[in-house]
């Protein structure tokens, strides 16, 4: 079922490409004219106020919905539906509550055609649970774990199926501050261990500016009504990175403040759409 084939990806063509992508729902334009090229191995953070369509963008990438206009391709092929080449981690519901954490991962492995026997798949699942620090919790139901542990299980599942693309929709949005910080470090570590910029491509939706800067190579800022890209900013922080290292990097504060400015402008327009856009130049 894996749609990607190594041969078809030439060095120059973008790995993931959105060209003038538009999407509407119930008569309202949710996304309008999205142009975005993402290279293999990039870690792209997407931020924007609620209602800017960033989750919808992720649904399009996941193949759960299809663009009304424009073209969305992965490895040069239009996305025709969900696929196991794109592992999705949702905010707090990536796991089926009636299966143990290990069985959730085993099911994904079965679907991906990985492991030759049930025993082998269980072993792979245990290996990845251990990787995210949940070695002894595999037999528990998702509902018996904390939110942070559930998200770690979901990340373990996404890594276990070895999908080249990870789509993450505010995976740490429902977590408390400290847990979130730990998950960010864990994700950075896992992504770098899995090959970093030579490994998995990550598209990470968040509403937290600092999170976007800590994790991303690139931050996409979106605005509302209609949802569109207003800023595409490279984060020049070195790799490999840790949360602590990123926060104390000299460039962190300027990048964060610039992004906050852009977001403020976006939200200001949203709150006061009638205001003359002459001042400040608009976007």
């Amino acid at each position: 079922m894996n749609n990607q084939s190594e041969a078809s990806v030439s060095g120059s063509a973008p790995y993931i490409s959105l060209a003038a992508v538009g999407f509407g729902y119930g008569g309202e334009t949710v996304l309008d004219g999205i142009d975005l090229d993402i290279a293999r191995g990039e870690f792209v953070a997407v931020i924007g106020p609620s209602g800017c369509g960033k989750s919808t963008l992720l649904r399009l990438l996941a193949g759960l919905a299809f663009p009304d206009t424009g073209l969305l391709t992965v490895s040069g092929r239009p996305v025709s539906g969900p696929g196991l080449d794109r592992a999705v981690v949702f905010q707090d519901y990536s796991l089926f509550p009636w299966m143990s954490c290990r069985d959730n991962i085993v099911l994904a492995l079965e679907q991906a055609g990985m492991g030759s026997s049930r025993g082998e798949r269980r072993a792979i699942a245990s290996e990845y649970l251990e990787l995210v620090g949940l070695r002894t919790d595999g037999g528990k139901l998702p509902g018996e774990l904390s939110g942070g542990m559930r998200q770690r299980t979901a990340i373990a599942r996404a890594l276990a199926v070895n999908a080249p693309i990870l789509l993450m929709d505010e995976p740490f949005g429902a977590l408390d501050e400290i847990t979130r910080a730990r998950q960010q470090d864990l994700l950075l570590g896992l992504w770098q261990d899995s090959g970093g910029e030579h490994g998995k491509t990550v598209i990470f939706v968040t509403h937290d500016v600092e999170e976007a800067v800590i994790l991303g190579d690139r931050v996409i800022v979106m605005a509302t009504r209609p949802g569109r890209v207003v800023r595409d900013m490279a984060v020049g922080l070195s790799r490999p990175r840790s949360r602590h290292g990123a926060l104390h990097h000299g460039n962190f504060v300027p990048i964060r403040d610039e992004l906050l400015d852009v977001l403020n402008q976006v939200v200001g327009e949203q709150l006061d759409p009638g205001a003359p856009s002459g001042e400040g130049g608009g976007i």
Binding site: R59, A62, L64, P82, R86
Partner: peptide, 9 residues
Amino acid sequence: WIDNARCLN
């Protein structure tokens, strides 16, 4: 749940 199932094919 259905989204999740679809993502898993």
